[in-house]
């Protein structure tokens, strides 16, 4: 890669988070290079979701520094899109798929802006990119888990962000949705965006991602899949109960 050096899309320095007296993250160092697709991997309770939430100011940070594109969060909000875990949403809420996507346009609309035909067209275009245009008028709870996840991805697309943070985007979705989401995310990366996803399925890491962050309360290893996603590093992350063999998956 040539050209002027770009700052990391997201960098965490000495990030610590506590829930009450319980430490969840301790002194995490992590740097997410721009234009790359990174998986955050680790056992349950390792603090993967908390890492995203702390970076985004959703849970209080006990210590450490978070920078987006070299700036504090407040200065970089317009460049960040977040896809939360599906469980965090009220499914009986009276919104349709297209309304959810239009929430991604809030920053360009503001408090008083009028919703125009251009906004509606943009929302429909984003639904098309995830293959959900035929479900635009369905209430969000009437969609399957995979369809819901695609709608939330479309909402993130509508923001026109440069950094996408996704919390378990493949949890509880069918194979068709998983491959649809992966190809959208890889398309974003190929267009220069940065993608960071909390991920569970070790067998798909080499196929989907460029880089990994192995996390268990603190950063165990970080780097390109080829060098950081090793049996030894996974052993240290998962503490001996390794769910699969990464060298086999790489073949």
């Amino acid at each position: 890669m040539s050209g002027p050096p770009r700052p990391d899309a997201l960098s965490l320095r000495g990030l610590s988070v506590h829930y009450g007296v319980l430490p969840v993250l301790e002194q995490v160092e992590a740097h997410f290079a721009p234009g790359r697709m990174t998986a955050i991997i680790g056992p349950n309770g390792a603090g993967k979701s908390t890492l995203l939430k702390a970076a985004l100011g959703l849970v209080p940070v006990a210590a450490g520094e978070v920078r987006f594109f070299g700036q504090p969060l407040a200065a970089a909000r317009a460049r960040i899109a977040y896809v939360p875990q599906r469980a965090s949403v009220d499914w009986d809420f009276p919104v349709r798929a297209v309304d959810v996507v239009q929430m991604g346009l809030y920053r360009s609309l503001g408090l008083l802006g009028r919703r125009t035909a251009a906004h509606r067209a943009k929302a429909m275009e984003c639904l098309e990119r995830v293959g959900m245009q035929d479900y635009a008028l369905r209430q969000i709870g009437a969609l399957s888990g995979g369809q819901q996840q695609r709608v939330f991805l479309a909402r993130a697309l509508a923001q026109g962000a440069e950094l996408f943070l996704l919390d378990e985007p493949f949890a509880g979705v069918d194979a068709a949705t998983e491959s649809a989401i992966v190809s959208v995310l890889q398309g974003l990366r190929d267009g220069g965006a940065t993608v960071v996803a909390v991920h569970h399925d070790l067998s798909t890491v080499p196929a989907y991602f460029d880089r990994v962050l192995l996390l268990n309360r603190t950063a165990i290893a970080e780097g390109p899949v080829a060098t950081a996603f090793t049996r030894e590093a996974l052993g240290r992350t998962y503490g001996g109960t390794l769910p699969m063999d990464p060298e086999l998956a790489a073949q």
Binding site: L56, R77, Y82, P84, S88, D90, V100, M103
Partner: peptide, 19 residues
Amino acid sequence: MRRPLTMVAFDPGYATVMG
């Protein structure tokens, strides 16, 4: 305030990230 009220009620975490 209809838009922010709606976004906060539907998905407070996402609303926070949106500023």
